[in-house]
Design a binder for these strands. Structure first.
Lengths: 358, 358
DNA sequence: TTGAAAGCGCTAACAG
DNA sequence: CTGTTAGCGCTTTCAA
């Protein structure tokens, strides 16, 4: 409770100047051993805790990297209106935890830890009564964001001040680094697998094409179909996290007459939901219809049947992002004109039961 | 790249004082509408991003809560020496992700988000070349730690400066709030379940009794045994995260002659590992021996057989912690003498296959 | 409603 | 090796 001790208090108690106190902590070797011990003792006695704010202000560096992510409570369809089918299928976050973003975030955490940076987590708020983007941006040395969480103009501005990286397929802002998985290739191979190994012919894609990743996946899907002389159907609109939209997509499929051979979802989250909806509709997967996902989240291993999917190197995506911004940070003063990185990591096909594989 | 804009730049461009700029952001209603617009326009034009450090220094608040957790690379036995059995059983973190700490952290994140706080993540480092504890402590308004990550004297000191909460069973530092699950009760009931429902008699506990949680679990275990007229055996030393220790514990069991009826592990992490070790030794679970865990992590649902355990309300533990420190923060100035919270959340028995339940 | 001015606690030249 | 001295950018009285 006592007023927190400052460098001045420590300096006074140790009988030295505040500069010496500062050096004792920041550049120990610059201070004579005996002096250092005195200072350390004084600091300990006073319960001195250096102020991160003051340090950041004076040095111009915070030692933290920011991660800006989604608002998980965003899904008004589930939390708010509560459509019956949402409740039935258990569409809440905990049902799927850890999600794609959680695993990527885990990679970010691990790499920050390894590199000695603290990680400042923030994100969209359901109630936009605050302005958290500048809030977090002003407190970190570099910023990492998930696609779609920060508007382009804001990203643009921020990227002029600090290194900014977005997990996204698209390149929309000049100076922003991007890291993504090979969405096109993954979906191409998965589609090809269904066609060649399982002899499926009528394949339907469901996803939210406004998102760059999903669009790339759809393009991989249509490319594979074309290469095998098949024609693509238009994508069914469905959005991960908006259970209602996925329910409607699946229902549309059920109502449209004979089922296609396969339903290829843009994400595992949607696919697992689809599995659950199909089952409660009495449709057998994979016998009546094959279902696939994309991402490789744990929920796909726990589903019935287990989910065939494309696994992204989630942890590695996170680690790569951190490495990239730290590198950018080091070049920041030196060569401001360094080109932003545009990284694409390889993915892996995961054959499980939902496509008909054993 | 341009030197980042400050209040001075914005003030100059808007033709007002820096105080007005500050007010525009912090207390909009105090500024005339037209002035505010002018300031906002100037800020936007300059790409102004308020400095969190300066703000924190001046206001004395950071708007962030710190979470200090384990170093996941800590396990030298796995990463370093690489005992063969560690490699065999796949003892790395990703095998178990998300761990107990991850799910608790998730709750912390969610609640911080909901309450408008940013979350600063930090933790022990394998290489202790830095001093991250004060580092993070100096940058946040309140600190949450996992038991055992911060030495008591440090906790003591920090708790005199900011609200501190530890996820721990023990109360070792006066002013530190604690949140924990009911370890004793959970293990008591689990032990009772094995005795009453499955008729088991010789039960062995494995865990790291130096940890308060594990000790409480062991005590619940012995209490249940005593209440049923059975005698407890000494606990086998095993530590979660230190695969080698668990391997040795299980091996000791195998070498000691006839197997006991059950192996009750202090954590799921150890139990899942035990399952894997027993299987490779040709021992059938639960037929030859029952195995149980504690925590309720996802890995226990994926194991073969699935793991009977006690589930802690992990997300809720995290959320409760955040609520508690925020409340403490609000009382901080008002009534410094507020007693620290000592919370204990209820747990739930989860019957799965590894104890012999269907 | 706005401005002037005094810090907040620390770092980093620059002297000595 | 240590001390002096400017700030770092913002918040916050207190006046006007």
């Amino acid at each position: 409770m006592a007023k927190r001790a400052t460098v001045y208090d420590v300096a006074q108690r140790a009988g030295v100047s505040i500069a010496t106190v500062s050096f004792t902590f920041s550049q120990p070797q610059r201070v004579k051993e005996s002096t250092r011990q005195t200072v350390l003792a004084a600091a300990a006695a006073l319960g001195y805790v250096p102020s991160g704010s003051a340090r950041g202000l004076a040095s111009g560096r915070t030692g933290a990297i920011g991660l800006y992510s989604y608002d998980y409570l965003l899904d008004g369809e589930v939390a708010g209106r509560g459509e019956p089918e949402d409740l039935v299928v258990g569409a809440d976050r905990s049902w799927f935890f850890p999600l794609y973003v959680d695993e990527v975030q885990n990679g970010v955490e691990l790499e920050c830890r390894a590199r000695g940076y603290a990680l400042l987590l923030s994100g969209e708020r359901a109630t936009p009564d605050t302005r958290p983007i500048p809030d977090v941006a002003g407190r970190v040395d570099a910023l990492i964001t998930f696609a779609g969480t920060v508007p382009d103009p804001a990203l643009q501005r921020l990227s002029e001040r600090i290194p900014v990286l977005e997990f996204s397929h698209d390149v929309r802002v000049d100076r922003v680094h991007t890291v993504t998985a090979d969405n096109h290739d993954g979906m191409y191979r998965l589609t090809e697998h269904l066609i060649e190994e399982h002899g499926l012919r009528t394949l339907v894609f469901a996803g939210h094409l406004a998102a760059g990743e999903a669009r790339a996946r759809y393009e991989g899907h249509t490319a594979a179909l074309a290469d095998h002389g098949l024609t693509a159907r238009p994508a069914l609109p469905s959005r991960p996290g908006a259970a209602g939209s996925t329910v409607r997509a699946v229902r549309a499929l059920l109502d449209a007459g004979p089922l296609p051979d396969a339903l290829m979802c843009a994400t595992d989250q949607e696919a697992v939901l689809a599995l659950s909806i199909l089952r409660s509709a009495g449709v057998a997967v994979p016998d009546d219809i094959a279902v696939t996902g994309f991402d490789g989240i744990l929920a796909g291993r726990l589903s019935t049947p287990t989910l065939t999917t494309v696994r992204q190197p989630m942890e590695e995506l996170g680690r790569t992002a951190v490495r990239t911004v730290i590198e950018a940070l080091q070049n920041w003063e030196a060569q401001p004109s360094t080109r932003p990185q545009r990284l694409r990591l390889p993915v892996e096909l995961v054959r499980r039961a939902s496509c008909g594989c054993p």
